[in-house]
Design a protein around this nucleic acid. Structure first.
Length: 156
DNA sequence: GCCAACGTTGGC
DNA sequence: GCCAACGTTGGC
């Protein structure tokens, strides 16, 4: 099982929104590196939910990948802000996954805490100038983030 | 609101 | 294929 980090601006879609609706497509990603990470996800993978462009930014919970290889429907929707006129239904350009809510941390693990805990090589989200919205997290880093949150997921 | 970082676009 | 201009992200 792999671990990931997914960024979202809470004004657009928050961990509370996911908790309420339980499952959601992670749509609207329009960066090729992020898309490639989405395409390499497997059902059962866990993803940290990160709130960006908020004060403070940080990891606020966990979700699980439940469906993979989904052509992002917003690329075909002329009314969507994510519409991609170059995408064809028979040859989609943007792919995503469906995630389900797992848990919301009792206390967020702030970006400041992440910077104090990890080197940029250990966790991509603390890399200077990092803008990627989907990125892998090592098992070791995932364990430490869960410790920082005072939680344990799926451990016997 | 500012601006560094960096991806994308398009002229050549 | 280069690279300047431009747009977006996201922390601060």
């Amino acid at each position: 099982m792999a671990y990931w980090l997914l960024k979202s601006e809470p004004d657009a879609f928050s961990i509370a929104d996911l908790e309420r609706i339980h499952r959601s497509l992670w749509d609207g990603v329009r960066n090729y590196q992020a898309r490639n990470f989405l395409r390499s996800m497997q059902p059962g993978d866990l993803a940290f939910f990160y709130h960006s462009s908020t004060e403070p930014p940080g990891v606020v919970g966990v979700c699980r990948v439940v469906r993979t290889g989904v052509a992002d429907p917003t690329q075909f929707d002329p009314h969507s802000e994510y519409h991609d006129p170059a995408a064809q239904p028979e040859k989609p350009r943007w792919w995503t996954v469906e995630v389900e809510f797992v848990q919301r941390f009792g206390r967020m693990v702030s970006l400041e805490t992440l910077r104090q805990t990890f080197t940029p090589d250990e966790l991509w989200v603390v890399r200077r100038g990092n803008r990627l919205s989907v990125m892998p997290v090592s098992e070791e880093a995932a364990r430490r983030i869960l410790e920082l949150a005072g939680e344990a997921v799926g451990s016997p």
